[in-house]
Amino acid sequence: MSRRLHPAVAGAQPFQLAERDPDAPLFGSEEGRERLEAILSRYPTRRAALLPLLGYAQELHGWISTGDMEEIAEVLELTPAYVWSVASFYTMYNKHPAGRHMIQVCTNISCHLNGAPRVLEEFLEQTGTVEGETTEDGRFTVLEAECLGACGFATAVQINDAYHENVTPEKVAEILASLDGPESS
């Protein structure tokens, strides 16, 4: 799926996707090298490419492994410890493999006022998980999220890179059914 990205947006690709290839090399492929060069060309320092590259690793693999961090550290001339320090600060980087559908339910104030806690409960109940846990078939991970910036459309739920708005407990079953089954990947 080689696609040449404009350098201006090469480091800004959605990285919470259902489709991913856990075995894809980061910089061993032509696409990876192109992406790296495109990103590096946009900043005066190599270090500034860190967040874009962490995003790229997650876009590819679905999460960020210690191996990914070591590889990124090497190309950016940073220590792996530094990369870990930064990666662990940001909540969107998955430090463990996540379900194919990462369901993030906003429970912040505006959604809270509109029944978000019940929406979260419903997701957990229907997937049979506790918060942060992945279903055994690897399909779902349900998380409580901080404000998703869709307060006028409460309750806001983000599933991978898509927003679902005005979600009520009644809509949960329908939303889950619309996501792919256990056999597809």
């Binding site: 940073l78 220590t79 410890a81 530094y82 870990w84 320090s85 662990s88 600060f89 909540t91």
Partner: peptide, 9 residues
Amino acid sequence: DETLIVAQR
């Protein structure tokens, strides 16, 4: 030596 860091938040 940048091997000791602050992690998490």
